[in-house]
Design a protein around this nucleic acid. Structure first.
Lengths: 352, 352
DNA sequence: ATCAAAAGTGTTACCGCTAACATGCGCCGG
DNA sequence: CCGGCGCATGTTAGCGGTAACACTTTTGAT
């Protein structure tokens, strides 16, 4: 019977309780070769004492923090929240802990955050997007850490990539709206340069418009990221003032599309009869809204899972001493046509 | 000119470069008394070498990890995402790092997660809700760590509390619907015992119904948490089969309410004329939907900020050696009546 | 039976930083 | 001109683990 300690038990306490050396305890807990009876004695002592390994001590001695840092723009946006959930699941499976930070779409914050996170000596880093400040790129280059960029296909990636072409996404929705006969198609996105992915979708819109021969773009920017439904409603109001003739709108995200549709409904503008609307991201609200919102679907959770798995592989390789060649996964986009861009289908909904 | 190192610079490297001892560097970086010229030399060396302190080594030596662990059910739900954002902001200001984990509403996962997080020796813990398994409570009690429970008002809290009465929230919405003349009010929530806060809101509904003398409850449970819009649509469909006579529905969350309204719209049931609907949480979708959704608003971000500040105070006290008496903050609830429970206001929207 | 290889465990020396105490120095009043 | 005080900095000894190697006992092939 051991007397209770006034401090948290250490590995030495466990070793003493099990009648072995500290090193054997260490091996047993990390799954190295230890004779079965010895291991059993150790495990019994661990649970009897309530021993919890001290991660910082282990990290210091082994030079392996077991951390992976992830930097996302925001968690309020359900898209990134799903990516983080996927990441967390994939990393947990690989025995890595997730250290999370949000930039709120500010690259100054991204840089400060990276510094803070680096103090914990992460073994890998997940970034959102492919555009980073020079200093961030330099810091990452110097650190020689495995990096995975997500939600984009950077022209010259730092390391691995799990993403898609935001330009293609914007173009796909534009082409879809053209294919159902719309000719005066507008784009509604954010006002700021802080969201490069939204900007790219706008560029895809312009390209698709040009290649369909649909005249000069009607591109309207409103609101600072994180863009939400409110910006969609406000932006739609302004858009209608400026170009009352429009018959379709490509929105930078489903949230914007939802707000835009709401504004149309308040003004008595029929969607999709008079104006068809499409979004991006396949948020749940798009499936459940009336009318349901057409979107370009992207597997947000899958991006997180794949990025996590990719980074886990790179971390494992680095621990072995070899460096994996950077992988690049392009995840698919899927155009999902729903009520907001389709006249057919279920009968029109009665007034609410 | 120092030659570049093949490893990350340590405090010793900085000390050598600045011509002082390691200890002086340590003091300078942590803001202790150091002569101004000495400090300047050190800072110059730090930035020239690109030195980043090693958090694990510091934690080991000082016995202060600088971590606070937070456990939330899910991040996909924008409510908790906002709480986490507030928490992150408050903790960052206090120089504490956030270590985040999600339980997915499973108490087995909560326990496993807590063990994983404990390896990092957090200096404080934020929990969501007030119901925890016996083992979780025991583990926390043994650790003697500052704890803050959020989103609830536990009868016998473990430590600090920043929350509100979910029962009162459910009752408030029920009373509101009764006050606009509804007499056959149903409740739509989740099927599982895994979401104690949702359950509590249902209990508040039952109590308010009884005290208004509105007959036996019509309480319908559908779906496993995390509950989302889809569950609202499906649940509403079943609810209408079972009790076609209802004239109002209290939903366990705004997401459910949104799904339920969509289902009504698809069936040609006028909201609020024939059925009034109310939710909980004041999600952004509620403000932007048509009709806008009545809700019981709670300041999710504020809960995070206050919990973070409260925990930061407790951690600071613990570092000084004294233990603060547990604080308890009850955050306000605000009933926001919108279109989904009001016939007056803007003219009815035309069919979409 | 014999020896090499393998299996199991112990010993030693750190990982990078900070608490606690020690030291040296300038400044003050008596 | 000295003792003592306070400030600025240095020294020592860990914090709680793990890598690397040493050592002893099996084990298996010859």
């Amino acid at each position: 019977m051991t007397s209770p300690l006034d401090r948290a038990p250490t590995m030495d306490d466990v070793a003493a309780a099990a009648g072995v050396s500290k090193m054997t305890v260490s091996r047993a807990l990390r799954g190295a070769v230890v004779a079965a009876p010895t291991r059993a004695r150790i495990m019994e002592a661990v649970s009897r004492l309530g021993y919890v390994p001290h991660a910082a001590a282990g990290a210091l001695a082994s030079r392996r923090s077991g951390f992976v840092a992830a930097i996302v723009p925001s968690m309020d946006n359900s898209n990134f929240a799903e990516t983080v959930a996927g990441l967390e699941a994939a990393l947990r499976q690989a025995g890595l802990d997730l250290l999370l930070g949000t930039t709120l779409y500010s690259s100054a914050r991204e840089e400060a955050l990276l510094h803070t996170l680096m103090r914990h000596r992460p073994e890998g880093i997940v970034l959102t997007g492919g555009a980073h400040s020079r200093r961030v790129a330099a810091l990452l280059g110097r650190s020689a850490l495995p990096v995975v960029e997500t939600w984009d296909l950077p022209a010259s990636p730092i390391g691995g990539v799990v993403g898609f072409s935001n330009r293609a996404a914007g173009a796909a929705m534009t082409a879809h709206l053209a294919s159902i006969g719309r000719r005066r198609i507008a784009f509604l996105g954010g006002a700021s340069r802080r969201d490069p992915r939204g900007e790219e979708r706008g560029r895809g819109y312009e390209e698709a418009l040009a290649s369909a021969g649909l005249g000069p773009p009607r591109l309207f920017r409103h609101g600072q990221p994180p863009l939400s439904m409110r910006h969609g409603a406000e932006g739609m109001a302004r858009l209608l003032e400026r170009w009352p003739e429009i018959d379709a709108v490509v929105c930078a995200s489903d949230l914007i599309a939802f707000g835009a549709i709401g504004e149309c409904q308040r003004r008595g503008i029929a969607v999709p009869a008079r104006i068809a609307i499409g979004g991006f991201g396949d948020f749940e609200v798009s499936r459940c809204a009336v009318p349901a919102i057409s979107t370009v679907a992207v597997d947000a959770r899958g991006i997180g899972e794949r990025a996590g798995a990719m980074l886990a592989r790179a971390v494992a390789a680095r621990r072995r001493g070899d460096a994996l060649p950077p992988e690049r996964i392009e995840v698919g986009l899927r155009l999902v046509a729903r009520g907001s861009s389709l006249l057919s289908g279920p009968p029109p909904d009665p007034a609410v």
